[in-house]
Protein backbone atom coordinates (compact mmCIF):
# COMPACT_ATOMS: atom_id res chain seq x y z
CA UNK A 1 0.00 0.00 0.00
CA UNK A 2 1.19 3.48 -0.82
CA UNK A 3 1.68 5.65 2.27
CA UNK A 4 -0.63 8.63 1.87
CA UNK A 5 0.39 11.64 4.01
CA UNK A 6 -1.98 12.58 6.81
CA UNK A 7 -1.40 16.28 6.12
CA UNK A 8 -4.51 17.87 4.63
CA UNK A 9 -4.47 20.70 2.08
CA UNK A 10 -8.23 20.74 1.83
CA UNK A 11 -9.96 22.34 4.79
CA UNK A 12 -13.35 21.41 6.15
CA UNK A 13 -14.80 24.78 5.09
CA UNK A 14 -15.00 23.71 1.43
CA UNK A 15 -18.28 24.76 -0.13
CA UNK A 16 -18.47 21.67 -2.36
CA UNK A 17 -21.74 19.73 -2.64
CA UNK A 18 -22.12 16.69 -0.37
CA UNK A 19 -20.52 13.68 -2.02
CA UNK A 20 -18.62 15.76 -4.61
CA UNK A 21 -16.29 13.55 -6.63
CA UNK A 22 -14.20 16.51 -7.76
CA UNK A 23 -13.31 17.67 -4.26
CA UNK A 24 -12.60 14.09 -3.19
CA UNK A 25 -10.17 13.80 -6.09
CA UNK A 26 -8.59 17.15 -5.31
CA UNK A 27 -7.95 16.09 -1.71
CA UNK A 28 -5.64 13.33 -2.95
CA UNK A 29 -4.15 15.44 -5.72
CA UNK A 30 -3.01 17.97 -3.11
CA UNK A 31 -1.74 15.29 -0.73
CA UNK A 32 0.38 13.92 -3.58
CA UNK A 33 1.57 17.36 -4.69
CA UNK A 34 2.48 18.78 -1.26
CA UNK A 35 2.91 22.39 -0.19
CA UNK A 36 5.20 23.66 -3.00
CA UNK A 37 2.26 23.77 -5.39
CA UNK A 38 0.07 26.36 -7.08
CA UNK A 39 -3.36 25.46 -8.43
CA UNK A 40 -4.60 27.25 -11.54
CA UNK A 41 -8.37 27.02 -11.70
CA UNK A 42 -10.63 28.12 -14.56
CA UNK A 43 -14.37 28.72 -14.14
CA UNK A 44 -15.67 25.36 -12.86
CA UNK A 45 -16.99 23.72 -9.70
CA UNK A 46 -13.58 24.28 -8.11
CA UNK A 47 -14.11 28.05 -8.38
CA UNK A 48 -17.02 27.49 -6.02
CA UNK A 49 -15.77 24.77 -3.69
CA UNK A 50 -12.63 26.70 -2.66
CA UNK A 51 -14.82 28.97 -0.51
CA UNK A 52 -15.82 32.61 -0.71
CA UNK A 53 -13.50 35.62 -0.26
CA UNK A 54 -11.80 36.27 2.15
CA UNK A 55 -11.75 32.56 3.10
CA UNK A 56 -10.08 29.74 1.24
CA UNK A 57 -10.55 26.04 1.77
CA UNK A 58 -7.27 25.19 0.06
CA UNK A 59 -3.91 24.95 1.78
CA UNK A 60 -1.98 25.88 -1.36
CA UNK A 61 -2.21 29.11 -3.40
CA UNK A 62 -5.05 28.97 -5.91
CA UNK A 63 -5.06 31.31 -8.88
CA UNK A 64 -8.48 31.68 -10.50
CA UNK A 65 -8.60 32.50 -14.18
CA UNK A 66 -11.12 32.91 -16.98
CA UNK A 67 -12.82 29.86 -18.47
CA UNK A 68 -10.71 29.20 -21.57
CA UNK A 69 -7.37 30.16 -20.12
CA UNK A 70 -6.21 27.64 -17.48
CA UNK A 71 -3.55 25.89 -19.55
CA UNK A 72 -2.21 29.16 -21.00
CA UNK A 73 -2.08 30.81 -17.58
CA UNK A 74 -0.26 27.75 -16.23
CA UNK A 75 2.20 28.06 -19.14
CA UNK A 76 3.15 31.56 -18.12
CA UNK A 77 3.31 30.65 -14.44
CA UNK A 78 5.51 27.63 -15.05
CA UNK A 79 7.87 29.65 -17.27
CA UNK A 80 8.11 32.34 -14.60
CA UNK A 81 8.85 29.91 -11.75
CA UNK A 82 11.45 28.07 -13.84
CA UNK A 83 13.06 31.39 -14.80
CA UNK A 84 13.55 31.97 -11.06
CA UNK A 85 15.04 28.47 -10.70
CA UNK A 86 12.02 27.28 -8.70
CA UNK A 87 10.48 23.84 -9.21
CA UNK A 88 7.07 24.71 -7.73
CA UNK A 89 4.38 22.35 -9.05
CA UNK A 90 1.98 24.15 -11.37
CA UNK A 91 -1.26 22.19 -11.56
CA UNK A 92 -4.20 23.31 -13.69
CA UNK A 93 -7.35 21.77 -12.24
CA UNK A 94 -10.28 22.21 -14.60
CA UNK A 95 -13.64 20.62 -15.22
CA UNK A 96 -14.67 18.87 -18.42
CA UNK A 97 -16.33 21.94 -19.98
CA UNK A 98 -13.22 24.04 -19.36
CA UNK A 99 -11.07 21.28 -20.83
CA UNK A 100 -12.79 19.48 -23.69
CA UNK A 101 -14.82 22.48 -24.90
CA UNK A 102 -13.80 26.08 -24.28
CA UNK A 103 -10.30 25.37 -22.97
CA UNK A 104 -9.11 22.76 -25.47
CA UNK A 105 -7.22 25.22 -27.67
CA UNK A 106 -5.17 26.52 -24.76
CA UNK A 107 -4.60 22.96 -23.52
CA UNK A 108 -3.42 21.81 -26.94
CA UNK A 109 -1.08 24.79 -27.20
CA UNK A 110 0.42 24.24 -23.75
CA UNK A 111 0.99 20.53 -24.46
CA UNK A 112 2.53 21.24 -27.85
CA UNK A 113 4.92 23.79 -26.31
CA UNK A 114 6.06 21.13 -23.80
CA UNK A 115 5.03 23.26 -20.84
CA UNK A 116 6.35 21.89 -17.55
CA UNK A 117 3.03 21.44 -15.75
CA UNK A 118 0.34 18.96 -14.81
CA UNK A 119 -3.10 19.46 -16.30
CA UNK A 120 -5.89 17.62 -14.49
CA UNK A 121 -9.34 17.41 -15.97
CA UNK A 122 -11.88 16.31 -13.40
CA UNK A 123 -14.74 15.07 -15.48
CA UNK A 124 -18.27 15.15 -14.06
CA UNK A 125 -19.58 14.93 -17.61
CA UNK A 126 -21.47 18.25 -17.72
CA UNK A 127 -21.24 21.96 -16.84
CA UNK A 128 -21.76 21.37 -13.11
CA UNK A 129 -21.10 24.87 -11.82
CA UNK A 130 -23.85 26.38 -13.96
CA UNK A 131 -26.39 23.68 -13.13
CA UNK A 132 -25.62 20.66 -15.33
CA UNK A 133 -25.79 21.64 -18.97
CA UNK A 134 -24.39 19.22 -21.53
CA UNK A 135 -20.70 19.43 -22.38
CA UNK A 136 -18.67 17.69 -25.05
CA UNK A 137 -17.85 15.18 -22.34
CA UNK A 138 -21.45 14.25 -21.49
CA UNK A 139 -22.12 10.64 -22.53
CA UNK A 140 -24.74 9.81 -25.12
CA UNK A 141 -28.19 9.39 -23.64
CA UNK A 142 -27.52 11.38 -20.46
CA UNK A 143 -30.17 13.91 -19.51
CA UNK A 144 -28.85 17.36 -18.66
CA UNK A 145 -30.66 20.69 -18.38
CA UNK A 146 -29.88 21.38 -22.05
CA UNK A 147 -30.48 17.79 -23.19
CA UNK A 148 -33.75 17.11 -21.39
CA UNK A 149 -34.48 14.21 -23.71
CA UNK A 150 -30.99 12.71 -23.38
CA UNK A 151 -27.78 13.72 -25.23
CA UNK A 152 -27.84 12.74 -28.89
CA UNK A 153 -24.06 12.90 -29.42
CA UNK A 154 -21.21 10.77 -28.10
CA UNK A 155 -18.73 11.76 -25.40
CA UNK A 156 -15.70 13.48 -26.90
CA UNK A 157 -12.60 11.29 -26.63
CA UNK A 158 -10.38 13.77 -24.77
CA UNK A 159 -7.71 11.19 -23.99
CA UNK A 160 -7.02 10.39 -27.61
CA UNK A 161 -6.75 14.12 -28.35
CA UNK A 162 -4.24 14.52 -25.53
CA UNK A 163 -2.38 11.36 -26.60
CA UNK A 164 -1.93 12.86 -30.08
CA UNK A 165 0.41 15.41 -28.47
CA UNK A 166 2.81 12.60 -27.51
CA UNK A 167 3.43 13.93 -24.01
CA UNK A 168 5.74 12.20 -21.49
CA UNK A 169 2.96 10.98 -19.20
CA UNK A 170 -0.81 10.81 -19.15
CA UNK A 171 -3.24 8.77 -17.11
CA UNK A 172 -6.89 8.25 -16.37
CA UNK A 173 -8.07 8.01 -12.79
CA UNK A 174 -11.23 8.06 -10.72
CA UNK A 175 -12.09 9.69 -7.41
CA UNK A 176 -13.23 6.28 -6.14
CA UNK A 177 -9.64 4.97 -6.42
CA UNK A 178 -7.64 7.46 -4.30
CA UNK A 179 -4.52 5.31 -3.93
CA UNK A 180 -4.29 4.95 -7.69
CA UNK A 181 -4.90 8.68 -8.19
CA UNK A 182 -2.29 9.57 -5.57
CA UNK A 183 0.36 7.44 -7.27
CA UNK A 184 -0.44 8.88 -10.68
CA UNK A 185 -0.17 12.47 -9.46
CA UNK A 186 3.17 11.68 -7.80
CA UNK A 187 4.39 10.07 -11.01
CA UNK A 188 3.21 12.99 -13.18
CA UNK A 189 4.89 15.55 -10.93
CA UNK A 190 8.17 13.64 -10.99
CA UNK A 191 8.39 14.20 -14.75
CA UNK A 192 9.58 17.42 -16.41
CA UNK A 193 7.33 18.58 -19.21
CA UNK A 194 3.60 18.35 -19.83
CA UNK A 195 1.65 15.66 -17.99
CA UNK A 196 -2.06 15.04 -17.93
CA UNK A 197 -4.54 13.17 -15.73
CA UNK A 198 -8.20 12.68 -16.56
CA UNK A 199 -10.24 11.97 -13.42
CA UNK A 200 -13.77 10.62 -13.63
CA UNK A 201 -15.53 12.56 -10.85
CA UNK A 202 -19.02 11.29 -10.07
CA UNK A 203 -21.44 14.12 -9.28
CA UNK A 204 -24.53 13.44 -7.11
CA UNK A 205 -26.71 16.38 -8.25
CA UNK A 206 -25.68 16.07 -11.89
CA UNK A 207 -25.86 12.33 -12.24
CA UNK A 208 -28.90 12.22 -9.97
CA UNK A 209 -27.92 9.63 -7.37
CA UNK A 210 -27.80 10.06 -3.60
CA UNK A 211 -24.69 11.71 -2.25
CA UNK A 212 -23.32 8.78 -0.18
CA UNK A 213 -22.92 6.70 -3.34
CA UNK A 214 -20.08 8.63 -5.04
CA UNK A 215 -17.41 6.00 -4.37
CA UNK A 216 -19.80 3.23 -5.36
CA UNK A 217 -20.62 5.03 -8.59
CA UNK A 218 -16.94 5.48 -9.45
CA UNK A 219 -16.26 1.80 -8.74
CA UNK A 220 -19.19 0.78 -10.94
CA UNK A 221 -17.81 2.91 -13.79
CA UNK A 222 -14.54 0.98 -13.61
CA UNK A 223 -16.05 -2.45 -12.93
CA UNK A 224 -18.43 -2.20 -15.89
CA UNK A 225 -15.54 -1.03 -18.07
CA UNK A 226 -17.14 2.23 -19.21
CA UNK A 227 -14.22 4.01 -17.50
CA UNK A 228 -10.80 2.41 -18.01
CA UNK A 229 -7.88 3.14 -15.66
CA UNK A 230 -4.59 3.31 -17.51
CA UNK A 231 -1.29 5.16 -17.83
CA UNK A 232 0.70 6.08 -20.90
CA UNK A 233 4.38 7.02 -20.83
CA UNK A 234 5.07 8.37 -24.30
CA UNK A 235 4.13 5.39 -26.48
CA UNK A 236 3.90 2.79 -23.75
CA UNK A 237 0.40 2.14 -22.51
CA UNK A 238 -0.38 0.05 -19.44
CA UNK A 239 -3.90 -0.75 -18.37
CA UNK A 240 -4.18 -0.82 -14.59
CA UNK A 241 -5.07 -3.93 -12.59
CA UNK A 242 -8.60 -2.88 -11.59
CA UNK A 243 -9.53 -2.35 -15.22
CA UNK A 244 -7.80 -5.51 -16.43
CA UNK A 245 -9.90 -7.44 -13.90
CA UNK A 246 -13.03 -5.64 -15.07
CA UNK A 247 -12.28 -6.49 -18.69
CA UNK A 248 -12.00 -10.16 -17.82
CA UNK A 249 -15.19 -10.23 -15.76
CA UNK A 250 -17.18 -7.06 -16.35
CA UNK A 251 -20.32 -6.10 -14.51
CA UNK A 252 -23.28 -5.40 -16.77
CA UNK A 253 -23.30 -1.77 -17.95
CA UNK A 254 -26.86 -1.40 -16.63
CA UNK A 255 -25.53 -1.72 -13.07
CA UNK A 256 -23.72 1.59 -13.61
CA UNK A 257 -26.52 3.28 -15.54
CA UNK A 258 -29.57 2.22 -13.48
CA UNK A 259 -28.79 4.04 -10.21
CA UNK A 260 -28.29 7.32 -12.10
CA UNK A 261 -31.33 9.50 -12.70
CA UNK A 262 -29.66 11.11 -15.71
CA UNK A 263 -29.95 7.83 -17.65
CA UNK A 264 -33.62 7.31 -16.70
CA UNK A 265 -35.65 6.22 -19.72
CA UNK A 266 -32.51 5.51 -21.79
CA UNK A 267 -33.67 3.92 -25.04
CA UNK A 268 -32.19 0.79 -26.64
CA UNK A 269 -30.43 2.75 -29.36
CA UNK A 270 -28.59 4.99 -26.87
CA UNK A 271 -27.71 1.94 -24.76
CA UNK A 272 -26.31 0.19 -27.84
CA UNK A 273 -24.31 3.31 -28.71
CA UNK A 274 -22.88 3.46 -25.18
CA UNK A 275 -21.91 -0.21 -25.36
CA UNK A 276 -20.32 0.27 -28.79
CA UNK A 277 -18.27 3.29 -27.76
CA UNK A 278 -17.16 1.45 -24.62
CA UNK A 279 -16.08 -1.50 -26.77
CA UNK A 280 -14.33 0.80 -29.25
CA UNK A 281 -12.39 2.41 -26.40
CA UNK A 282 -11.30 -1.01 -25.13
CA UNK A 283 -10.31 -2.19 -28.59
CA UNK A 284 -8.23 0.91 -29.19
CA UNK A 285 -6.45 0.50 -25.88
CA UNK A 286 -5.89 -3.24 -26.27
CA UNK A 287 -4.58 -2.82 -29.80
CA UNK A 288 -2.17 -0.19 -28.54
CA UNK A 289 -0.96 -2.51 -25.75
CA UNK A 290 -0.52 -5.38 -28.22
CA UNK A 291 1.48 -3.18 -30.57
CA UNK A 292 1.39 -3.20 -34.40
CA UNK A 293 0.32 -6.57 -35.77
Amino acid sequence: MTEIPTQEFLRKCSTACAGCGAVLGLRYVLKAAGPDTVLVVPACCTSVMQGIYPNTAFGVPVFNVAFASAAATASGMSAAFRSMGRQTNVIAYGGDGGTVDIGIQALSGALERETDFLYICYDNEAYGNTGMQRSGSTPRGARTTTTPGGKTHSKKDLDRIVAAHNIPYMATACSAYPQDLFKKVRKALSIRGPTFIHILAPCPPGWRYSSEKTVEMGKLAVKTGIWVLYEREYDTLSINAASKAARKKPLALEEYLKPQGRFKGLDEKALTDLRQSMERNWRNLEQEVAGPC
Binding site: G51, I52, F58, G59, P61, V62
Partner: peptide
Protein backbone atom coordinates in the same frame (compact mmCIF):
# COMPACT_ATOMS: atom_id res chain seq x y z
CA UNK B 1 -1.16 30.30 0.49
CA UNK B 2 -4.06 32.55 -0.54
CA UNK B 3 -6.94 32.39 -2.96
CA UNK B 4 -6.56 34.82 -5.86
CA UNK B 5 -9.79 35.95 -7.48
CA UNK B 6 -12.20 33.57 -5.75
CA UNK B 7 -15.97 34.06 -5.47
CA UNK B 8 -16.41 37.55 -4.03
CA UNK B 9 -19.56 39.08 -2.59
Amino acid sequence: PCGYGPMTG
